[in-house]
Amino acid sequence: MKLWTIQPVEVWELLQQQGFYRGTKEYVYEEFLYSYDWLVGEMEKRLGPRPEPESYPVWAWKQWSGSYVRPDLRFRGHLEKGTRGVRLEIDIPDEQVILSEFGKWNYVLNYWYLPENDEDWDSFNEELEKRGLNFFQQKPLPDPYYHQKIVDSWQRIFDIEPKNEDERGELSIQATFWELRLEQVRKVDFFVAR
């Protein structure tokens, strides 16, 4: 599977030195640790165990932003402004990758319920309101049943099939995997983040 990963230039140097790169917890903001740990659990179910107990996902793009397949380096936000970085075009075996929809990942990061549709959203929020619960204000919800409903709803991030032709042009598909090997790199583009 052809993917693109954006990394600080130091990751590229490390990859050249040791022949592989694995994600680490040190790059995860503490407020997102629960979400990342959830994703790690999903990856272990779908891909197998981590290479090391402290390994975290390596992130890449399958489709960066709708009609842009690879990340456009002229845009801001790939890395902190002024950071020297690389865009690596890589080829990872399909069975080593989990794909998810970037916009939906924000529901996981923010501990939001990810609805099937507008009616599902309204219904779930009405249920919570009747019980005096609000996932925007209580993280995690104190009621284990509704907490689990939120966590279970996150499975929808893995639904990357567009519902219609308009949605096809809007999707941003991200990829996670355990390890990037030097021999999987096909092209390197250097840049300075804007």
Rank of each mutant, 00 (worst) to 15 (best):
M1N: 13
L3V: 14
W12V: 02
Q17H: 03
F20H: 12
F20E: 02
T24G: 13
Y27R: 14
V28P: 14
E30W: 10
F32M: 05
S35Q: 08
S35M: 12
D37N: 09
W38S: 12
G41H: 12
G41P: 15
M43Y: 05
G48Q: 02
E52A: 08
E52G: 04
S55W: 01
W61C: 11
W61K: 11
K62L: 10
S67M: 07
Y68L: 08
P71I: 10
F75S: 15
G77Q: 07
L79N: 09
G82I: 10
R87D: 03
I92K: 01
P93Y: 15
D94R: 15
I98P: 03
G103Q: 07
W105N: 00
N106E: 06
N106C: 05
L109E: 15
Y111L: 10
Y113H: 01
E116A: 06
D120S: 03
E126P: 03
E127D: 09
E127W: 05
L128Y: 00
R131N: 08
G132L: 13
L133V: 01
L133S: 01
N134E: 02
F135R: 05
P140I: 11
P140M: 07
P140D: 11
V151M: 11
D159A: 09
K163T: 15
N164R: 07
E165A: 14
E167Y: 09
E170C: 11
L171E: 11
T176W: 06
R186A: 10
A193H: 09
